[in-house]
Simulated scan of single mutants.
Amino acid sequence: MRIPSAIRRLLGPALLIGIWWVAASTAGDNSRRLPGPDAVLATGIELLRSGQLPDAIAASLQRVTTGVVLGVSAGVMLALLSGLFRIGEDLIDAPVHILRALPALALVPLAILWFGIGELPKVLLIAWATCFPVYLNTFAGIRSVDRSYDELARSLQLGRWTAVRRIVVPGALPGLLVGLRYSLTLGWLVLVVSEQINASSGLGQLMTDARQFFRTDVMFVCLLVYGLLGWLSDRFVRLLERHLLSWRREYTRP
């Protein structure tokens, strides 16, 4: 008897919850440090009813969305300039590789010094982290387009920008979407740290308050929400892949 794919996908999370439950049950006096799934669920329901969790999620979503849009836009633009023009590659590629070696989290002190402790440094740190995966994968996608298509474009007398729109962009789209998946994951990771910069709202602020009062159950709720939002972001990109790359055989499977 074949198990439906939807049930198979639930087996992994169910196993993790089971391990968590067993670990919490055997914690004994340390149960406050490692609350069980039932305690975390009860706390999550309480935070939902009070409105704290929805408000925190909305604030965090706004930050990560703004940062990802800025970072992805910058990455795509730089990749197009560098991938389509040799002079663009000469001017852009090396500086981008130098800058991407600088970890976003190490830039937190400078971001505070330059931009203060408001929303701007949080958004800019997310944009910084999300720019480079999109650039690298989009650039690789542009350069991996089969050169025979150039001859096809010339034989059809297509203009340069028409060829870019009809040939280069579709060929680079798989790489761009892979970069977007990496960028969304990095966006949530950087958000966790950036929201520790004197945030007055968001999941990070909720975790900071919970740490001060040793509310590990609230901290677990926030961590689970971060993980769930990251998973939903990844699923969103997977849906985009199925829609935008339906012309590729591997994305036509049910």
Results as ranks from 00 to 15, higher is better:
Gly83Leu: 01
Gly159Met: 13
Ile117Asn: 06
Ala58Val: 03
Gly88Gln: 00
Asp93Asn: 02
Ala23His: 03
Ser82Met: 02
Thr138Ile: 07
Arg154Met: 11
Ile7Cys: 06
Cys222Pro: 06
Leu80Gln: 05
Lys122Tyr: 01
Leu78His: 04
Val40Cys: 13
Asp146Gly: 05
Gly230Ser: 05
Val190Met: 11
Ala94Pro: 00
Leu107Ala: 13
Leu70Ser: 04
Ser183Asp: 10
Asn30Leu: 15
Asn137Lys: 10
Ser5Lys: 13
Thr252Asp: 14
Thr208Asp: 15
Phe236Lys: 00
Ser82Cys: 03
Tyr226Ile: 07
Ala163Cys: 12
Arg8Asp: 13
Val123Met: 08
Tyr149Val: 14
Trp161Gln: 06
Leu176Thr: 14
Leu228Thr: 15
Phe85Cys: 00
Ala56Cys: 10
Val193Ala: 15
Ile98Ser: 14
Ile92Gly: 00
Val134Asp: 02
Ala23Gln: 02
Gly179Gln: 12
Asp217Gln: 10
Ser5Gln: 13
Ser5Phe: 11
Ser200Tyr: 09
Val22Leu: 11
Leu125Ala: 04
Leu156Ser: 09
Asp93Cys: 02
Pro174Ser: 07
Trp188Ser: 13
Tyr182Gly: 03
Thr65Ala: 06
Ala129Tyr: 01
Asp217Trp: 03
Ile112Asp: 00
Ile112Glu: 01
Ser201Leu: 01
Trp247Pro: 12
Gly51Asp: 12
Phe85Pro: 00
Leu228Asn: 01
Phe214Arg: 05
Leu15Asp: 04
Leu156Cys: 08
Ile126Ser: 05
Val168Cys: 11
Arg100Cys: 03
Ser183Ala: 14
Trp188Val: 04
Leu206Thr: 08
Leu113Val: 09
Ile117Glu: 08
Ala163His: 10
Trp21Asn: 10
Ala59Lys: 13
Arg165Tyr: 04
Asp29Lys: 14
Gln196Pro: 00
Ser148Ala: 15
Leu177Gln: 07
Asp234Ala: 06
Leu91Asn: 12
Leu80Asp: 01
Asn30Tyr: 12
Ser73Glu: 07
Ser144Val: 08
Thr26Ala: 08
Met77Ala: 15
Lys122Asn: 08
Leu99Val: 07
Cys131Tyr: 03
Val96Asn: 07
Arg166Pro: 08
Trp114Thr: 00
Ala127Glu: 01
Thr208Met: 12
Leu78Ser: 01
Pro133Gln: 11
Thr43Asp: 06
Ala39Lys: 15
Arg235Pro: 00
Gly28Trp: 11
Arg211Trp: 11
Leu102His: 03
Thr130His: 12
Leu245Phe: 09
Ala24Phe: 11
Gly227Val: 06
Met207Trp: 00
Ala27Leu: 09
His97Cys: 14
Val192Cys: 03
Lys122Phe: 03
Gln212Ser: 13
Phe213Asn: 07
Ala153Tyr: 09
Phe115Trp: 04
Pro103Tyr: 04
Gln205Ser: 14
Ala210His: 06
Ile17Phe: 07
Trp128Tyr: 15
Ala56Gln: 03
Val145Trp: 00
Pro4Cys: 09
Gly202Ser: 01
Ala24Gln: 14
Leu81Tyr: 05
Leu184Trp: 15
Thr162Glu: 14
Leu244Cys: 13
Ala199His: 08
Val168Trp: 01
Gly202His: 10
Thr43Pro: 11
Pro121Val: 12
Asp93Glu: 11
Ile167Thr: 05
Leu34Cys: 02
Ala56Gly: 12
Ala58Pro: 04
